[in-house]
Amino acid sequence: MRRAQRYYPIIPVLVAYAMLLGYGLLFPGKWQLVAQLAFYCTLGQAFNLFMGMTGYVDFGYVAFIGIGTYGMAISIYYLYDKGLGLFIVVIGFILAAIFSTLLSLAVGAVALRLRGAYFAIATIGVNEGFRYLIEGARIWNGADGIIFSLHLKKAVGRETMMVLSTFWADVLVFTVAIAAAVLTLVFMRNKVGYALMALRMDEDAAKVMGINVTKYKIIAFITSATLAGLLGAAAWALKLTYIYPVDAFAIHYTVEAIIIVLLGGAGTLMGPIVGGLIYGVAKYFLAIVLPGFQLLIFAPIIITIIVIFPEGTVGILKKRVMGTALQKYII
C-alpha cells in the first residue's frame, strides 16, 4: 500500500464531520442538536482511543472531562481581570490539557500496572474519588463549584462571550473530534497502533514479542485523557460557564461513552462517529417521545451488542466491504 493511501480512511471521517457542521450552519435552528451530536462523536472518538485500541475499560473516564472543565474555569475565574482578553481561553485550554494529562499520569501510574479486572476496579472510583477530594478539601470552592459567566463577560465582552459559548465552543468541539480521529489513524498506521493491537489481543504474547506494553498503554491513556480534558474545556466550560463537582464527575458520561463506542464498533476509526450519531439522534428523539428513558432503552441494546455483535456497526460493515473498492476507506 502506498503511503498516502494508508491515510485514505480519514476521508469519510472528514466528510462526515463536514456534513454535520454544514447541516448546523445551513439550519441554525438545528445548531443545538448538531452541537450535541458533535459532543457525542467527540466523546466517542476520545474514549475509543483508549478503550477501543487497548481493550481496557476506564470506568472513571469522565474525571478527565471534569478536570479539563475545571482547567478552563480556573483560567477564566482567576485571570479575567488581567486584561488578557480572549487569551484566557487559550490559557484555559492549555490548563485543561495539563490538568487532564497530570491526572491521567497519576491514575495511569497505578491502574496501568494492573491487568483486566483490577484495572477496572482501580478506575471505577477515580471520578467519585476526585469529586470528593474537591468537595472534601474545599479545593476550587468545593461543592459550591465555580460560576464564571460574569468573569468571562468582563474579560471578553458580552457579544464575544455570546458567540463564544453558542458557536465557537461547538466548533472547537468539532476540532477536538477531528484531532482525535486523526490521532487514531496515525496511531493505527504506526508502530503504536500495532503494539496496541497486539496487546489488545494477547498481552502476554505481546510482551514476549518485545512490546513494552506499559509504555504503549500509557501513550494511549494520556492521549485519550488529554482529548477528554480539551472536550470538557470546550463543551462544558465554555458553553455552560459554570461547573459543579457533582456534574463534572457524573459517571453517566462514562456510560454514554461506552455506549457510543460499542454501538459504533470498538477500535474502529469510523465507529465513534456512527455510534455518536445513532446515540445522539436517538437520545434527541427519545427526549421528546419518552423523556428520561434513553438509558433504560440503550442498556439492553448494549448487552445485545456485547454478547451477540461485539464488532459493532462499523466492525460489521468493515467485514462486508472487505475485498471491495471501499475497503481502503473504512477501518
Binding site: 482501580a122 476526585f130 469529586r131 477530594l133 472534601g136 474545599r138
Partner: peptide, 20 residues
C-alpha cells in the same frame, strides 16, 4: 474541610494504595 466527602476520598485513596 468537609469530613464526609474527605472520608470518601480517603477510602478511594486506600484502594489505590492497596492496588499499588
Amino acid at each position: 474541610v468537609e469530613p464526609f466527602a474527605l472520608t470518601r476520598f480517603f477510602s478511594f485513596l486506600i484502594l489505590l494504595v492497596i492496588l499499588l
